[in-house]
Amino acid sequence: MSDSWSVRVRWLPWRRLARLGIAGDRWPRMVEGPLSVLARTLWFVLLPPLLLACLLELLVLWALLPFVLVGRALGLGSWWVDLRNHGCRAGTFRVAGARSARSLRRALAAHLRRGGAPGDDGAARLVAAEGAEFASVEISARDWELVLRRLSPHARRRWFLWRRRLSIADSLDVLPGGLGDDPVSAIIAIPFVLLFVLCLGGAVLELVVQAAILPVVVLLRLVRALAWPIEVVHRGTVETRQQVHGFLPSVRARRQLAEGLRLNRRRPEQLRQLAPLR
């Protein structure tokens, strides 16, 4: 299956509103030194309330989940299967039972893996075979901008003396993004959450050390005793492209390198209504 499409059974009664991805997708990039640090510091102040909101919403959802499952088993509620493109919801299927939901998810995943399109006749036959109903969802321009930002490489000047081994953004990447909201996924996520806490602590410690020696490093670069590394960052990998002496030449070099790095993928068109919800 193409890495751009995913199909997931939704166990919880509603789609979560508080998600760590909201913070991760908007994490300020380190491109202009002190200004980026200030933006990240302000963003970090908002992280604890978001973590608390995530925890509270999950507790409420998990408290309601047994009643939701009993109601669905008694035929009082439907099961939902979400179709996503790069994490953006592009459509929702509604089916009567858990078996139909799992069967539809497997069939659609296999269909996409074979190169089929999510809205073609093959997908329509799968929907009809499971008695599912489909509601298309338009991906908003704002959500697609976040996708392009996440996929596109970007250029930066490295202000710190060495490239950090740990970062807060990398700590967020430790959290599993491909898990569902079923009970098994929640159990699997526990060790990842503990690892996230450890990585976050290490990232903060390394950042404190780097910040302590930063004034000396900047002074040496301003007098051209040290060069400014110009780097390209893409999906967690960092490549040094240039070593430029001088403050203003380094600014120009970064901006020139940044031109043309951004991807220009078209936003997916809204899928046709395979079987509109009534």
Rank of each mutant, 00 (worst) to 15 (best):
E133C: 13
G201N: 15
L175E: 05
Q256V: 15
Q210N: 04
R266L: 07
V223A: 03
L146I: 15
Q256R: 11
G180V: 08
T237Y: 15
V244I: 09
I168N: 04
F247Q: 02
D143V: 11
W162G: 10
L248Q: 03
A211Q: 11
R252K: 05
L207R: 04
T240W: 04
R235V: 11
D173G: 13
L222R: 15
L263M: 08
P249F: 00
V233K: 03
V208T: 03
F247G: 00
V238H: 05
S140K: 13
A253E: 02
D182T: 05
S171T: 01
D182Y: 02
V147W: 02
H245L: 01
L220P: 06
E138P: 14
R272V: 00
T237F: 09
I188T: 11
L172A: 07
C199G: 14
V147S: 01
L222I: 07
V238Y: 10
W144A: 01
F160P: 12
L161A: 15
Q243D: 02
G246T: 00
L226Q: 13
L271S: 00
L205Y: 15
G202H: 05
V216Y: 12
V232K: 11
V244Y: 02
L263S: 01
R165E: 14
R241Q: 09
C199L: 15
V197H: 13
L248E: 06
V137L: 14
L205R: 11
A128P: 03
L214S: 00
E231H: 05
R255Q: 06
I190C: 08
R265L: 09
T237I: 07
L214E: 02
R272Y: 02
A155G: 07
L195H: 04
R157H: 06
R163W: 12
L207Q: 02
L219G: 10
